[in-house]
Design a binder for these strands. Structure first.
Lengths: 238, 238, 238, 238
DNA sequence: GATGAATGAGGGTTCATTCAT
DNA sequence: TATGAATGAACCCTCATTCAT
């Protein structure tokens, strides 16, 4: 007979560790932990409360329901990722093109590295029926697309670079490509990700795509470095 | 004991419609329908049975449990997509390079167009904890990567085309890019997808990436295939 | 996906073996087999039908419902046991007392040996809520008690044997003791049952109880061995 | 979601009655009640919860599953019976033999009288497939057999009493006989049980069996204990 | 008769949520 | 505020029974 015994010793200790943190934070951490450890299906509110070292009632003190709880976690995770992205974007804009792309790629990788395990459960297991996780991710991606498009439009106007004509599509492809490659690599192809060529190739791909070279027509254009240099030069030469 | 069952006219009519189809097929269709209409969390076996116009027992006559039911649906969907892909791949191999890429892209779009709504729920909502759904999708993608890599290796040997050095990464990027762009466009960016430039740009991106032109340096290198010609011109002269 | 495949080859073969038997008999055998092999909880009508090599419909052709099916099996088993008992009882009546007891004990053991495995499931697992198994067993035991009582009464009248005064209780105790000891030994104490002393002791117990010795009054009655000998001698001494 | 719950007056009142008792106790009582009233097959967890005046969830708060629930009930019942038995056994050991037997028989009757109706369902209807109910009963009986055997061995050594040679069988028969007779009488033959002769006869049977009188052969053998004396003497003088 | 696909009431169990303390 | 026992709708699944063929 299993009576409700509570040898919650370890639980209590764990909870104490987080004592400094607010209860909300403790709950959110526990949510992430349980989600990663046990998967979405097993992540019941009771289990989360247990892990957090608080009573189930306390969860409902701060979150109206389970969806809101997961929503807050998603929001928080997305914001962390966005933070990494944004802090990088800042100086991306001022860099010469190929370097900007590389910075963008690295930022994306860094963003995905914030908490890959959590990211994975969030993306793969959370029910996306409501408007929760995936929708928020899409929002972020949409933001990125807009940003990139703006950046490209700016480039096109202020430099002589030759860019794809349909900037909507171009920005979409650039962002989608970098995000998808990064995402898949971080989650499922760690060995590919580890190769130096991974970033190089990904950057190369995006640069080659976005940057159309006029150089072909002007064979002698001496470019110091491969990618970086050629690009600028290419623009509306004629 | 089964007493007078309530008429449930629509249910009966629905059932009669599908009478010609096997029960298994009816159930699978209902599963897809409910999944798309109500989302995974609401797709209970009882709801599916109701939609199928069969009793809950009939589902368990053909599927040992719910997971197997969804598994069968995933399998079926994946096979349909794979069918589209494979039937296209056949002649891809014999085509000159850029056309091969275009064929590949179109095949991927067509594959995703088989049942986009279902594809979406399957990808986004099915719990990927078991081994079924996502794993199967990854299998297919892994197959695609292998195929592409083989194809590229073959190209590199039998032609004078210059390809990326790290073919593992190259194949991964090519497949991931095309799949991701296609997937996202089909599911969430129908207006981008509708533009003629979408395919053009996607093809362009992949071709520009995979194909490095030596022609610039070796103007006379006359390559028979169309492949060489278009791309070549692009690269940096110096 | 588990479709209703029917590689019922072995099933069919099994069924053929019983082809000579009537369908009812085949079903009853299958019922016993499944009951013994899988236990009551797993003995579903479908499983029984499968084992019998007939369709589930055929069972309902011959038995109105599951209870009736098990009822028939119980009836049959009880009758077999009763047959063994009765055929023994016939000559018990004419035997001198201690031998009669021994014959009775042996008959009981033989009766329980008819199909111990089946007997066990029937006794231990069949729901006795209705009036089915246990009730029938009790009927048989009640019959036995009556028989024994009659026998004892007859003995008391026609001989000078001294018997317990309360023949109701005496008969009850005698039958209960022999049945219980036999039952438990056959089902759970095979090693005790195998000892020669088992039967000897059981017979001894009953004889000592039923037969009160006049010897006490006749101190010199020299009995060679303790139990065995004293008893016989006791017989119609007067 | 829990909307306005229906009054269910009796349920509430019943619940209030037991409010003092722990929920576990209430559930266990309800289980026993339903088991006795409706039989095992009808004793669904929902029915038990209803009877207990608690929600079905409360059952699962304290018992991991249905088997554990019944297991706890069996355990509890067995312990109660064992308690009665043990408290009696204490002074059995110090008593002269026939009185010890009588005490044993009375203890067994008292033990079976703890809750005969429950005892009956537990013994007759609980599926003994798992390891719980029947196994536990057998454990108790095995303990009794061991105890009795030890007691007899002690007697044989420390007194001049003549006992059966095979003490394994003797102890088995003694315990089985007393248990079976008691069990059947309590459950199905209340009128026999009510007769004073019932206990007398049962005690008589066991004593006669276990105790072999040397007195016959050795008239003068004066045995201190009451045992020897009573037995012989018992026979009808006339 | 025989078949077996289909039926659906009902069983055990889970877990988000409430509320008296 | 915090607690956690209690709640009960709903889920997945089983299986005795039916009936059109």
């Amino acid at each position: 007979m299993r009576l409700a015994r509570k040898p919650k010793i370890s639980r209590v200790r764990k909870a104490r560790q987080d004592r400094a943190l607010g209860t909300v934070d403790t709950i959110l951490r526990a949510t992430a932990h349980v989600l990663v450890r046990d998967g979405y299906d097993k992540a019941s509110t009771n289990r989360i409360a247990e892990r957090a070292g608080v009573s189930i009632g306390s969860i409902y003190q701060y979150f109206p329901n389970k969806e809101a709880l997961f929503g807050a976690l998603v929001e928080r995770h997305i914001e962390e990722m966005r933070g990494v992205l944004v802090s990088t974007f800042a100086d991306v804009l001022s860099k010469p093109f190929p370097e900007a792309v590389r910075a963008f790629v690295l930022a994306m990788i860094r963003a995905h590295a914030v908490d890959p395990a959590l990211h994975r459960v969030l993306i793969e297991q959370l029910p996306r029926v409501g408007s929760l996780p995936l929708a928020r991710v899409r929002d972020v991606e949409a933001d990125a697309v807009t940003l990139v498009k703006t950046y490209l439009a700016h480039l096109a106007e202020s430099t002589s670079l030759v860019l794809p004509k349909d900037l909507d599509v171009a920005a979409f492809l650039a962002v989608t490509t970098v995000e998808a490659a990064t995402h898949k690599a971080v989650l499922h192809e760690r060995d590919l990700l580890a190769r130096p060529s991974f970033v190089d190739e990904l950057v190369d791909m995006v640069v080659r795509y976005l940057l159309r070279d006029e150089a072909a027509e002007k064979p002698r254009a001496p470019t110091a470095t491969a990618t970086k240099i050629s690009a600028p030069r290419r623009r509306r030469a004629s």
